[in-house]
Design a protein around this nucleic acid. Sequence first.
DNA 1: CTCGTACATCGACGCTTGTCAATTTATCTG
DNA 2: CAGATAAATTGACAAGCGTCGATGTACGAG
Lengths: 116, 116
Amino acid sequence: MSFTELLPLTDVTACCAPLTRETISAEGADKLARTLKAIADPARLRLISMVAAHEDSEACVCDLTEPLGLGQPTVSHHLKILVDAGIFSRDKRGTWAYYRLVPGALDSIAQLLVTV
Amino acid sequence: MSFTELLPLTDVTACCAPLTRETISAEGADKLARTLKAIADPARLRLISMVAAHEDSEACVCDLTEPLGLGQPTVSHHLKILVDAGIFSRDKRGTWAYYRLVPGALDSIAQLLVTV
DNA sequence: CTCGTACATCGACGCTTGTCAATTTATCTG
DNA sequence: CAGATAAATTGACAAGCGTCGATGTACGAG
């Protein structure tokens, strides 16, 4: 019963209590920190923004390497981190790998930070 | 002309475009990443949560050291990072330094992540 | 003025992270 | 099959980060 493909790390979604509503547990803090670390990088923020802006809201590595100004292995590395964190999904079609935002992933994170 | 005390790093508030609405600039990504890095740590997430839950929504270092399970210098270090990022404000009264959430700081960050 | 307390700062240490060049794996084409 | 292209993986390196112990600083009590 491998949930891994269906719910990569989106247990962030499962977690509900906003940070400031009730005291977070050490484990919860660890998990949320890991997710935030995945986003807390300039290259990865730009990747998220670029993929969202790309046509059909998806992009392959070759679309991203040159505008980002980083090497292909580095871009692949960042994309893997985002996939592992449940932010991106990966769809391999032929020789290309297409990445897109997991719907609701960023919103789930945002809801944990909000205080209102 | 030192803005530093008035606008620690809350230019995050000034920034408006959610990540996925328009393509973020390299500079914008850098700034947002710095802010997110300030939050993307288990100890600091717990500090945020603990301060928000504390009576009068403020706490001094001595309130936080023991429940966090970290040394006093380490806690001071984390608090400084949160203050520099504009998440916490610091108010020294007598021998004690009281920290509290900057109103709207976390919400500003959350709004940059949201996709809806 | 002296002592104790609360906090900040400094220096050092190990671990993690971002990046690259080189290599490997997978897939399509002829 | 051989060759070419897209992407993932590996190994290495410098830089950054979290933590601690020791020290410095500011403030209140006596």
